[in-house]
Design a protein around this nucleic acid. Structure first.
Length: 749
DNA sequence: GGGAAGACTTGGAAAAATCTTT
DNA sequence: AAAGATTTTTCCAAGTCTTCCC
């Protein structure tokens, strides 16, 4: 793709809220913005703390109705309101905004793409022999065709070689012709330890199946999970169900969780761990290597003859489901996956990997060339699919990564038009368009996630479209406070100054509603993405996150890199830019338990060095070239020539017990100067460590580095300023981003 | 149109590996 | 050389978004 530097949307270039965030002084709490206009954050929740939804949900409104999608009824589809001009626009290169066209009209959206799918009429025929030229969209294809396609994908078929697909298309394209791999690796079967559970103090020698489950629980003792009532309840339900189903002798006896005592099992686990710890490094290394040998064949796959690394070739072991936040299913027993549960995806003519578990066989063998996974199974807890994919450094992942960033760069061309359109849309008389517009604004300016609907069996977290009235507070001077639990139940707490029109419109969406009501009741995620796609093919909410993240990094790095910095200073500068991106995306980590200790230790070390430095500098010249230096040193052992080895050892031993001695030394000034210099450098380094440590104590840089920052920005900047790329990318990152390593130093996002 | 399924990316924490300090 | 801190990798949960199917 071509470079996209120029923008046709200069009037909207200032990206207000991104800039706004950047000005934030010390961020103490979840992402906070500009001090002057930002109200002090009142609710003190330690950043990075995962919050139970009960805490963030302020009102006592019943949850039940919240989760259900609110039909986009009544108001949303005002009769024949908009004669959509959209389809034409979506094709045009430098798309003008699709004027007032709204998705609120059903006809509108479904038609909008028909034009762009000119080849779709061939899809049906093509599908039968596995030839799908492009992905068909928005249900334009009849159900019959879908069925055919489905069959074509899943059934062994004669090999047809003439498949050719537009690289541009999404998931429907053929991704490979040949796929060879060894399948998946299973955890070892359970070995009973025969350690009893205590029930009312009585020893219960559980049957192996029940013992295994009890042991799952014992491993979690000491974690916060066991303080979670739901966790214990779910665990115990499943444990009881197991006792009953295996007709355990204890099925009728073990009735109450609180009467269970796992301490004997736990002690057993601890002793195993202790034994493991006792092993010498050499033993451990040998073990590791033996393990690696055994697994080697699983680590690579051959895709069209290329060797590629496999990512997660191990089947997830059984255990307790560790849901995050207030997950309704947390603590439930995750069943052991057997070969029969696994679907293997290989090439039609390629060998099927042998099943590694004697006496068992794979559940299913498929040849799904439109997918990149090697194996899949159904998760026993969530009912969702789990996949084995190739590793991050693979061609598949690399290509889609690159495509992701190119798409984000393309957004640069359209974002001006989009911003104009949503500003205009907020004034519309149509509720649906108004909501689409305000939601677009929030996604663009605050980098919010889309916020799909969630089910009853999931934690109650939200994103943009699922925001409820209780998550917003309207403050003075066009300030809005957003306070909700986002992905992974990480709290998003932010006070922002918004456009007066946004303030007013958003307030109108909330007025007259109950705290638990949806703010955006006339739209949902599918609708919003369809709306986005009118402006730019393939545009969806997450592209804005990528775009704004990379845009921010590029701006910060290029606008203000000071000249002539040390390597450490360069890294610090880079991390600071990275940190702004992380704050924008609300990437948090929990503060490590020993944070305070660690910081204190650094401060102490610095104080020591400063003291040393002072001593070094407080010196008197002895002659022109030498000084007397006072130091505290260990007493040196006194060896005499006639001492044997044993006596020497004893002398060393004796001396090591003595206190340090004050010594005065005559030292060359030159030498002192270099020591002073070195000490100064060490102090500076510790200073930097202290700064970075406190600065990043609850900001996680990893996620943005891995998923949001176009690596070419970093590569270009490193080249330009002669910073070795290894200083900012770990070796796995270097591999993952190998496609970006040849970027020239002139690259701009 | 809309719910469900499927496939893939994103995310923080835990575990493992490596580096630093004592 | 052990202990402790830090960085990197692995793990798997939890999102997004498209397609399937009624």
């Amino acid at each position: 793709m071509a470079f996209v530097n120029e923008s046709d949307s200069s009037d909207w270039e200032d990206v207000p809220l991104v800039a706004l965030k950047r000005k934030a002084p010390d961020v103490k709490q979840p992402p906070r913005k500009r001090s002057a206009e930002v109200a002090p954050v009142s609710k003190a929740t330690a950043k990075g703390e995962r919050v139970s939804s009960a805490r963030a949900r302020t009102s006592a409104v019943p949850v039940s109705s919240k989760r259900k999608r609110i039909a986009s009824s009544g108001s949303s589809s005002s009769p024949a309101s908009s004669s959509s001009p959209s389809s034409a626009e979506s094709k045009s290169e430098n798309s003008a905004p699709p004027s007032s066209g709204s998705d609120c009209d059903a006809k509108d959206s479904s038609q909008s793409d028909v034009g762009s799918d000119s080849e779709s009429e061939s899809a049906a025929g093509a599908a039968v022999n596995g030839r799908k030229k492009q992905k068909t969209r928005h249900g334009a294809t009849p159900a019959r065709v879908h069925k055919e396609r489905h069959r074509a994908r899943h059934v062994h078929r004669f090999g047809d070689e003439d498949d050719h697909y537009d690289a541009d298309n999404g998931s429907q394209e053929i991704k490979w012709q040949s796929l060879v791999h060894k399948g998946v690796c299973f955890p070892p079967p359970y070995e009973p330890h025969r350690k009893p559970l205590l029930y009312k103090g009585e020893r219960c020698m559980l049957e192996p199946e029940a013992e295994e489950i009890a042991t799952f629980y014992a491993t979690k003792i000491g974690t916060t999970h066991v303080q979670n009532e739901k966790f214990n309840e779910n665990f115990f339900d499943d444990f009881r169900a197991c006792l009953v189903s295996i007709k355990s002798q204890y099925a009728s006896r073990i009735k109450k969780f609180v009467l269970c005592d796992f301490s004997i099992i736990r002690a057993h686990l601890d002793s195993i761990r202790a034994k493991q710890k006792e092993k010498t490094p050499a033993e451990r290394k040998a073990e590791r290597e033996a393990d690696a040998d055994r697994l080697r064949e699983y680590t690579v796959a051959q895709v069209d003859g290329r060797m590629e690394k496999v990512g997660n070739f191990r089947v997830e072991p059984p255990g307790l489901f560790l849901g995050r936040g207030d997950h309704p299913l947390t603590g439930k027993v995750k069943k052991r996956i057997m070969p029969e549960d696994i679907t293997i995806n290989v090439g039609r003519t390629d060998p099927v990997p042998p099943c590694p578990v004697p006496g068992h066989r794979w559940g299913q063998i498929v040849h799904n060339q439109t997918a990149t996974w090697l194996a899949s199974w159904k998760d026993s807890i969530t009912g969702g699919m789990k996949y084995v994919f190739l590793g991050a450094s693979s061609t598949f992942k690399g290509q889609s990564d690159q495509a992701k960033y190119e798409k984000a760069r393309t957004l640069e061309k359209h974002v001006g038009a989009i911003r104009k359109a949503y500003t205009k849309g907020m004034r519309s008389s149509e509720l649906c368009l108004k909501q689409l517009s305000v939601a677009s604004y929030l996604i663009d300016k605050l980098a919010l996630r889309m916020g799909n609907e969630k089910g009853e069996d999931e934690a109650d977290t939200v994103g943009c479209c699922s925001l409820r009235v209780e998550h917003l507070r309207f403050l003075k001077e066009n300030r809005i406070e957003l306070d909700f639990l986002g992905k992974d139940s990480i709290r998003y707490l932010n006070v922002v100054v918004v456009d007066p029109l946004v303030y007013e419109t958003l307030e109108s969406f909330c007025s007259g509603k109950k705290p638990g009501d949806s703010v955006f009741d006339a739209i949902h995620s599918t609708k919003l993405n369809k709306h986005f796609q009118k402006f730019m093919p393939g545009l969806s909410a997450k592209v804005f996150r990528t775009y704004n993240a990379s845009r921010t990094l590029d701006n910060l790095l290029h606008m203000s890199t000071p000249e002539a910095m040390t390597t450490d200073a360069m890294v610090e500068f880079y991390n600071k830019a990275n940190k702004e991106v992380a704050i924008l995306c609300n990437h948090q980590k929990s503060q490590s338990v020993s944070f305070n200790d660690q910081l204190e230790r650094l401060v102490e070390r610095k104080a020591d060095l400063v003291k040393q430095l002072k001593q070094l500098e407080r010196r008197e010249t002895l002659d022109g070239d030498h000084v007397i230096v006072v130091a505290h040193e260990h007493v040196k052992p006194l060896f005499t020539p006639e001492m044997n080895m044993k006596e020497r050892e004893e002398e060393k031993e004796r001396v090591s017990k003595l206190d340090k001695q004050r010594v005065e030394k005559k030292v060359a000034i030159k030498l002192i100067e270099s020591t002073v210099e070195r000490t100064k450098q060490r102090i500076e380094k510790i200073d930097l460590q202290i700064r970075m440590k406190s600065d990043l104590k609850n900001v996680a840089l990893g996620t943005s580095k891995l998923n949001y920052n176009d690596p070419r920005i970093t590569v270009a900047w490193c080249k330009k300023h002669s910073l070795p790329i290894e200083k900012v990318f770990s070796s796995s990152l270097l591999q993952k981003f190998s496609w970006a390593m040849s970027t020239s130093e002139d690259f701009r996002f």
